[in-house]
Simulated scan of single mutants.
Amino acid sequence: MRCLIVDDIDPILFEWLNKAQIQFDYKPDWTKEQCIEALPNYEGLIVRSKFNVDKKIIDTCSMLKFIGRAGAGVDNIDKDYLHDKGIVLFHASEGNKVAVGEHTLGFILSLLNNIVRANTEVKNGIWKREENRGHELASMTVGLIGYGNMGKETAKRLAAFGCKVIVYDKYRRNYSCKNAEQVSLEILQEKADIISLHIPLSDFSNGWIDTDFFNAVAKPFWLINTSRGKIVKLKDLNKALLSGKVRGAALDVLENEKLSTLSDQQQADFQLLAQNPNVILTPHIAGWTFESYTKISKVLGEKIYQWSINYLNKPIKLNTP
């Protein structure tokens, strides 16, 4: 079995592929066109974000047995069509869950205490102490939307600060735990002082956080998004920020993250966000730490190895390299 790796990856993945007796070609420097042309000759593909694996590409790959997504989300892969074709899809959300949880906590503390704004002011010779008086996280109710790997790790960290954590997940049942209380969406929108998104991009979630959503939240609140940019309509977010319904926002992701390709409307929305002193922006790095880079490859490698044991009927033996 042969696998094509088209993005940069931690070498620990190579060890797991060797254990699984899967030959691999590591071609992170290949163009998208070169990768797609070669892919029909492989049974496996490891990809991060070099290209979307759509129905057209899948149909050209008659030998394909598995795809590994070196990251948490799989919105650049047509997972439903893979399922129909009997192709296995692996992803590694466990690998960067700690990074996302810590980044989310950093966002929240920075917003509540005006850290980014105050830093900019002081560096420019402006000393505004009273205007930058902060809020204590312990006094807040934090609402998490989505309670998978990222949501759970975030709740674990928030619990240590003594705040109340409530969580809504459309696809789970009976998921209350010591760190978070399961509630309906309506209760979350009624009680939350801070809302943090931890959901994948889907037909349902695409554009879900819009004016209607903001209006349904009872209190002025802070918004955190470390999930996917297209979930939040930036035009509507700007309106909510200007009206005071959203007190501040911290976004690690945007609707269009290729800033050189923004449409006129996207450029206007982005500029309004960038100029708002109550907005913090980071370049999709919430799950992008030195540690998570290695852990993602390790998790992905373990999953592929375990699958290969069953697929090839080899004796089951899973040892860490």
Rank of each mutant, 00 (worst) to 15 (best):
N319T: 14
F66E: 07
I304H: 10
V165K: 01
L144E: 10
D25C: 00
N256D: 08
Y311D: 14
R157S: 07
L272Q: 14
D25M: 02
I316M: 06
V98A: 07
Q182H: 12
A249F: 11
G244I: 13
I304E: 11
P277N: 05
L39Q: 03
F14G: 09
G229E: 03
R133Q: 03
D203E: 15
N179S: 10
G248A: 04
S202H: 12
A218V: 05
K298M: 09
L234Q: 15
G125L: 06
N132T: 11
Y293P: 00
A38R: 12
R129S: 05
N113I: 05
D25V: 02
V279C: 05
S176H: 12
V47A: 11
S297N: 09
V47S: 13
L237R: 05
F290L: 14
S176V: 09
P11F: 14
T104M: 12
I280F: 10
V53D: 03
K56M: 05
E33I: 12
R247S: 12
D59V: 10
V74S: 10
N114E: 13
N256Y: 04
G244W: 14
L144Q: 11
R2M: 08
L312Y: 13
I195L: 06
E190D: 13
K239W: 01
E131S: 02
I57F: 07
G151E: 10
E181K: 11
D7E: 06
K56N: 11
E181P: 02
E186V: 08
E302V: 02
T289H: 02
K233T: 00
A70H: 14
N278H: 13
W127A: 01
L17P: 05
M150V: 05
K164N: 13
C177T: 10
L39E: 03
Q275G: 03
N276H: 14
E153A: 08
K152P: 12
S202N: 08
K233C: 01
P315K: 01
I77V: 15
I58K: 01
R157E: 03
D236R: 04
P28R: 10
G125C: 04
Q189D: 00
L242T: 15
I194Q: 02
L201H: 10
P11H: 13
N52E: 13
Q275A: 14
L45W: 04
D59G: 07
K55S: 04
F221T: 03
Y175W: 09
V253C: 01
Y81G: 03
K50I: 04
L112H: 05
L17D: 03
N149W: 13
N238H: 12
V183G: 04
N41C: 07
D29P: 00
D269H: 06
G148H: 12
D29C: 01
G151K: 06
I9S: 08
W222E: 02
N276A: 10
N113R: 15
E102R: 07
D264L: 06
E37F: 02
K178S: 14
L82A: 05
I115Q: 07
I187K: 11
L105N: 07
D252E: 08
